[in-house]
């Protein structure tokens, strides 16, 4: 991929993720593989709406050094680990989406994916072991959670990591992960409180139950 094309793809993906509510403000980060040795990633601490395509940062996978004066996201190591371990992957999206973050707060993986969700996400969604943001431990834990054919991982107490062979696929993985986590929470709620029926409860219904039942 050409540099200008990669920068434009990362820039556009940032705006799209904000529009979808999958990231907000300065949270999360997005990257695209440039070649076998480098990727382009969003800068550290900048809001997506104020960025320009030319401000996306080129980072070397090997030593994590970057080109230019703008600092890359502090999660660059996690992105590099994905590109080095999964040669077919060309786009990585780290989101702070709501339902996925809730499951990540419980440090659970998602079991029993529906066929529709499994087609996009792979055989399952694991939760990477807890580690401080930006740390080498988080980088290793995320790479482990993405082993096999998995397209998404939850990051304990932090958020989610979604990958794809294209940016469109990574974006689709993020949206599907959010839907799968929403279902997982509602199904877990029904199992825990032995609620019968086929219709999943809404978030509002679960909150009302939470207040009434003295959980």
């Amino acid at each position: 991929m050409e540099l200008d094309e990669a920068r434009e793809a990362v820039y556009r993906a940032g705006l799209d993720l904000v529009k979808e509510g999958l990231v907000a403000r300065t949270w999360g980060n997005i990257s695209v593989r440039l070649d076998d040795y480098r990727f382009v990633i969003t800068p550290s601490g900048r809001t997506y709406e104020t960025l320009k395509p030319g401000e996306m940062v080129v980072v070397k996978m090997g030593d994590l050094s970057h080109e230019g004066t703008i600092k890359p996201s502090s999660e660059k190591g996690m992105h590099a680990a994905v590109y080095l371990g999964r040669p077919e992957i060309t786009a990585v999206v780290h989101t702070h989406q709501l339902f996925a973050s809730t499951v990540a707060a419980a440090r659970k993986g998602i079991k029993g994916l529906s066929k529709a969700h499994a087609r996009v996400l792979g055989s399952g969604v694991a939760c990477a072991a807890y580690a401080l943001p930006g740390s080498k431990k988080l980088k290793r834990a995320a790479a482990t959670a993405l082993e096999g054919d998995r397209r998404a991982a939850l990051l304990a107490n932090h958020g989610a990591l979604c990958i794809g062979e294209t940016m469109a696929e990574a974006f689709d993985v993020a949206k599907t992960l959010e839907a799968a986590c929403e279902c997982f929470i509602a199904q877990s709620f029904m199992e825990k409180y032995e609620i019968k029926g086929t219709d999943l409860p809404s978030t509002e219904q679960m909150h009302r139950f939470y207040l009434e039942k003295e959980i």
Partner: peptide, 20 residues
């Protein structure tokens, strides 16, 4: 925004066995 996310995680993680 973050307070909403934090409260949501606190409440709904109880359905998953509790947040850590």
């Amino acid at each position: 925004q973050v307070l909403e996310k934090g409260c949501k995680a606190f409440i709904e993680s109880t359905f998953l066995g509790g947040g850590v």
